[in-house]
Amino acid sequence: MEASVRIRRFTGIDRLTHIFLIITFMILAFTGAAQAFYETSWGQQLVWFMGGYQQVKSIHIITGWAMSIGFIVHIVISLSRINWRHPWHSLFGPDSLIPTWRDFKEFGQRLMWFTGLGKAPPFERWTYLEKFDYWAVFWGIPLLFITGIMLIYPVDTSHLLPGWTLNVATLLHRAEAVLAIVYIIVIHLLFGHFRRSTFPLNDTMFSGSAPVGHLEDEKPGWVARLRDEGRLTALVVAAPAIWFRVLYFVFAYAIIILGVYLIFSALPYSNLLHG
């Protein structure tokens, strides 16, 4: 098989979920930053741009609900994808996102590869980094959801919990948001797209497919397994149409630029530089 032939890596539902996540994440990040940096001149500009403080708050809350509903839908879809006849293999096999001992081993092997002391690990379908990325978001969203609900309904929360937990909820919500945003923009976006092998854009999640040659370099274990199971040819898909490639290229770069703008604008006002 030629190296430029593309094989499918993500289904249509995966890609749709991911786009939905990108959009809700960016809206929440910007409306959240506008509220958090309200006392600063940049924050005031941002609030003005988005239509005033009340509107910013409403958009943040509504989009938060949208992301939470998307999260629930995603869980339902993921549960439906588990092969309940062979649950162990489905959950802990190579196609699953659940971390296994193999991932820790491969992390160690990768560090050896970085330092030139070992060969590149034979990554299977999901690398340890992709799994970490998934579960980091997976725990971040419920934390933000719960603290967010506490902050939207403070009086009702105080009926169930002591009122001072609202101080803690505010801190956790802000801190988790900062962690998520900085991680996604710096690690997921910048290191994801601007590596030598993926520059200028790692379009796998947008097109749903990747060239076999690229996958043999990055995830040889997976390609070998597909070949052994005879499923490789069945996964061959056509290259995406030019107009589609232009579309997602523009979209992805818009997101990257917005993300970098957010980080660099907020940095001067942040605790990092104020100590």
């Binding site: 403070p154 105080s158 009122g163 001072w164 609202l166 101080n167």
Partner: peptide
């Protein structure tokens, strides 16, 4: 904050 309870008042405003 309509309906605030004594618990609600344990929120630290001047944190």
């Amino acid at each position: 904050h309509e309906g605030a309870s004594a618990s609600f008042a344990t929120y630290v405003v001047h944190q």
